[in-house]
Amino acid sequence: MIWPDWDTLASWLELMLAGLVVTLKLSFLTTVLTIILGSLSALGAVSTSRTVRIISRVYVDLFRSVPILALMIIFYFGFGPWLSEWGIDTFTLALAALSLSSGAYLSEVYRGAIQSVPRSQWRAAESLGLGHFAILRFAVIPQVIPPLVPLTLNAVISIVKNSSLASLITVNELTLSGTMAVSLSFMPMQVYLLLGAMYAAIILPLIFAAGRLERWVNRRYGLVSARLKPTMAMRTYASAAGLGRRDR
């Protein structure tokens, strides 16, 4: 394998570091929006309102059924003429496609965690006169957040990897800048190895952090989203409702 000279390597790095910045920016913003969308949708899925539950279900099923790449192409080339008139650029389109799709997946994870809280705890909170939102806020959500942290980190890893699809709608992120470097130097193996190393540099720390968090959560709370340990608040609600340990 021929190794590039320093000038060539510097030109690759110049291109790819610019792409890396775009990838990080896209991944960060997507993560924020994904968590917001996933949370809202999950809360919608357990809502007392049938309409809200249906809206949430439609969103999740719709965006889980369309591949992210297809979604980006639909947004860019399908709705392109109208969206460009509103001044929406390709970065925003990629952000929207990634967030909507990832949000739908994360929503199911969050909904599963919320629904894994035993019904007895909901009933205990209800017996204290708490409404739906108060139960979620004071009883359910505090329990499910810790085990969801490592799962959310795993979603972030997927988001970083999926961000490379934005290259196909001209977002000049890391993969596209790597392709550009290949088209200038014709050293695909070397450039793509560098590209892989850059992705690994982002993702490996996330994998490490997710693993550590998962172990910590398992030690602290038991198996993630399966054996959720009741909080102090829940124990209080349970004993006030006269529920036994098995009911908890």
Partner: peptide, 21 residues
């Protein structure tokens, strides 16, 4: 710089022009 959009194929770029993108 960022005003140069890199397309992967000719039909994609042409369609973007026709779309006004």
């Amino acid at each position: 710089g960022e005003d140069a959009l890199l397309f992967q194929s000719q039909p994609q770029a042409a369609q973007a022009l026709l779309n006004g993108q």
